[in-house]
Design a protein around this nucleic acid. Structure first.
Lengths: 125, 125
DNA sequence: TTTTTAGTTAGCCGTCTGGCTAACATTCGT
DNA sequence: ACGAATGTTAGCCAGACGGCTAACTAAAAA
């Protein structure tokens, strides 16, 4: 029912939002080194468990993290596709602005000439 | 007075936060194509000017956008270094998890064996 | 079977976000 | 000098965020 573009926009919202918090970035960095239980993830953070759980839920709903509960332990893992989504968006912007800079380079001299010409007009008004 | 690491962390907070909103990403995309005045930026957005100004201020304080006022017009431009900051962070994470996946590949069979062994223990409790 | 471990749910609290309107300031065109 | 154009400031509002504690559930260990 939701258009694919709306989906995409929303996922970027979620992923960027998830990564805008230092605690969550640290969790992501930790998970880059492999799976971890909630308890393991919590240890470095001097933070009450429920607070950390909120972060984990945010990471999950952004798609950056997956988790599965076995027995009483919930194991979390990184879903790298979500990070890739961000990389793709950034790469697209970079391509656009670099194209523009290329075009711009070509016209720098022209613009400089115009500027000098305008300056002359201004002086002689 | 602020440590360089605290700075870095904070800038990532700001930049990721700035990019977590679709309106602001659209502004960034627009600015990839060159400078624009506040009015030009506002046009596509069916949003009151002050609301849009808030977004612009957030983009500025994140370092993603610079602006200069000449006469009564404020012209905004993209500061690509800030986007590069994010790219660098993402690339660093990617490197780590890809290294891990390389190592992991080597141990896949071993881990599978352990899992089967654990499953047996669980069953026979 | 009791106790410990590991997470979860519920709910409180102050702050930040993202939108709005209304009123003000400044500069430009006439 | 006046009026229109372009931002800017101030302040309101509802809802999300990031932390907390207290109380609960479920599984493992003793």
């Amino acid at each position: 029912m939701v258009s694919s573009m709306a989906n995409k926009t929303n996922q970027l919202d979620q992923v960027f939002g998830a990564l805008s918090d230092a605690t969550r970035r640290a969790i992501v960095m930790r998970l880059c080194n492999g799976e971890a239980s909630v308890g393991e993830l919590a240890k470095p953070f001097d933070m009450a468990l429920p607070s950390l759980m909120k972060h984990i839920r945010i990471l999950e709903s952004s798609g950056l993290v997956a988790s599965e509960k076995t027995g009483r332990v919930r194991t979390c893992s990184l879903r790298t596709e979500a990070l890739a989504t961000v990389e793709v968006w950034l790469a697209a912007q970079r391509e656009i602005w670099e194209q523009r800079l290329d075009r711009l380079e070509i016209y720098v001299d022209k613009l400089k000439k115009e500027e000098r010409s305008n300056a002359r007009k201004r002086k002689s008004k």
